[in-house]
Design a protein around this nucleic acid. Sequence first.
DNA 1: GGACCTAAATATAAGATCCAAATAAATTCT
DNA 2: AGAATTTATTTGGATCTTATATTTAGGTCC
Lengths: 401, 401
Amino acid sequence: MDGTTASSTQLLRQINSEALLRFALQEQVFTAGEAMAATGLTRATVLGVCDGLVGAGWLEEVSDGGDAGPAPKGRPARRYQLREAAGVVVGLDAGEGYLTTLVTDLRGRGLGKRRKSIDSHALGRAGRVASARELIGQALADAGCGDDDVLLTVVGVPAPVDAEGMSPEGGEFWQLMNSGFAPALPGTVIVENDANLAAIAEQAQEPSANVATLLSGERFGAGLIVDGRLLRGRQGGAGEMRFLDVFDSKLVPDEGGSDGLGALARKWARKGIHSYGGTTSLRRLPEEGIQAEDVFQAAREGDPLAGDIIDRLGARLARIAVVLSSLLDIERVVIAGGISSAIGPVLEHARSLLPTDSGLPLPSLVASTLGAEVVVQGAIESALMRIRREPMAFLPRAARS
Amino acid sequence: MDGTTASSTQLLRQINSEALLRFALQEQVFTAGEAMAATGLTRATVLGVCDGLVGAGWLEEVSDGGDAGPAPKGRPARRYQLREAAGVVVGLDAGEGYLTTLVTDLRGRGLGKRRKSIDSHALGRAGRVASARELIGQALADAGCGDDDVLLTVVGVPAPVDAEGMSPEGGEFWQLMNSGFAPALPGTVIVENDANLAAIAEQAQEPSANVATLLSGERFGAGLIVDGRLLRGRQGGAGEMRFLDVFDSKLVPDEGGSDGLGALARKWARKGIHSYGGTTSLRRLPEEGIQAEDVFQAAREGDPLAGDIIDRLGARLARIAVVLSSLLDIERVVIAGGISSAIGPVLEHARSLLPTDSGLPLPSLVASTLGAEVVVQGAIESALMRIRREPMAFLPRAARS
DNA sequence: GGACCTAAATATAAGATCCAAATAAATTCT
DNA sequence: AGAATTTATTTGGATCTTATATTTAGGTCC
């Protein structure tokens, strides 16, 4: 497949090495005996494979007895662990108005994090890439390592992304967001849709084979996991939410089709202060100053216009949930992104609208607990999954000699 | 995983055997040299593996030189082929009003076919199973083999089916359709949703990684293939079409939610002859005698009411296409089932309704060419795919001694 | 401190598999 | 009949795994 085609005689060794490495990636420190139980191989084989992995720089033998074990009886076991210096992974959330990056070791422990606001439209593609490059450099410096240590970088962008990491050619905005990061960032680079990464993060938090994660700040995008697998679609368009308004207005998409809940709250509030009949506290703010936060805040204080908007958002969400549940048998819908903390009332209203007599069980509607970091967390999780799946494809920094 | 856990030393042999067998399942008759090219193994190894497969009853050496090859020069190659008597697969379309079964060899060549009308509600679960048992027995007799020859039986039922072959407990109709075939039918038995099987059949006809196949006779069900994989959902509910009317009537599903295009044409026609203002040839038929065929026929002759119905069906289809395209990035929508031959005008109208300014390309709408046999064909194809994926899991009838 | 116990590491032998190269066989062409 | 050609078979070597026996490193008990 990739790299040198191993001779068939060495294939077995490689299979066993991968299995052992997969095990090592989940354990802190392990003995040969534990590895024997996990892989089903003999002690001699396990030790041989470990030897090879130490030589390749993946593992290191740990000698100091910092152990509180239950009084081991016989000869003490040799213990191995993943070599700290084997490498790190980088996650990057390359949003429209900000960049967030996170560097972790191979077990997902954070080593460095950076965030920066950007103006993508002023920067252009090249500018976005350069900014990302710089930010990652800083985060790597925080983590005390360099470009060569990065095994894999996963980038989340707000655009459909196909299996090759490309976005549809028609979309100018999409092309701007998916700025061609691959050549400039360290290690192997994988570009993925941001909502898809959010879905991976949510699934890692609470495993479930059929979840939809709605990344719902400015734009609306869904990461769909069905039968435990992320859906992509030919051009990466799976999870786009354009269909919503297609229904409202008879196949003609109107404005708002891809707006997220946050953007909608803002838009409806700015429009509502003109058209709404009753009194509303939102009029105290200048029209251009109204943000989604203000609407949620006003609703909590009982403002009627804000309450209406909450209800409309809830109805919208309920529709989405029904479609996802009906068409894909989704069992859990997670609202993620920056506004997930304030979304409670919307969820409540949406739940009340769900039909009760439908044949199949209703999906549960929940808010994400990961806040604004879903995408970066998902990027890291995605990177780690990838490395776990085929560890040998990502060579660690060569050991000495 | 299944069966005897092979010792690790034998794993390599097994891998190579499976690879060779997969190759053999696609070829008519092959030489060791061809197998070498396909698997990348040495001649000695290939012959050794072939030896083992002959011993296991999978392959047989073909000696008679019924070959029109281009005058081979050197020593003639030994040629192998899949043993005809290795086994057969059975497909069963267990619909509500009929049973269809097809027996084929391991390359999908038909050996026997039977069809029978049934009254499922009168028969009950046990009666359905018994009828299926009998019909399959007849088809096997036509094919000249018995129960022991069946490696795998795939059953399609009009109900959601989860990964274990079970349907949701709530649905009485579903439980009746998914009648518990497994213990009574020959070979390993797999139960699957009928629309999913139709999707597999369509994809086998014209490969495409993202297709939706609407099985649209009496009931509406979709088989969804995204990223080359069939979607199932936790309870097998992926592809249910209840969401349609949820939109029309504000989250309250009304009648017709799961009716197929055929059923809708009939219902609308029977209702329409009362409410419609103009003249229509459909009134010449008794209300209870109007069938979907009559509506399509009348439309071809220019009847206005029938034309209206066609348009409404087209609009419905267009909605479905837009949702599938938008939410799942589906590139092709196939209408399959008994009415697929008459569906042309509906497709035309639906195409005209598709929006043209949407960001992503529109799905193509096509009619299936497999007619009423889609489900059975898909069942066979599904069985063959399964056997190709893990051939060794299905032992062939033991060879002599 | 020394005898004993235990579980792990090492060493050794054996089995299975594959590859590479040499040898033998079967067929066509001259 | 003999050369050429292609394939089958045999043989030796290398790799990797397993199974068994032996050694080793610690602890415990007296």
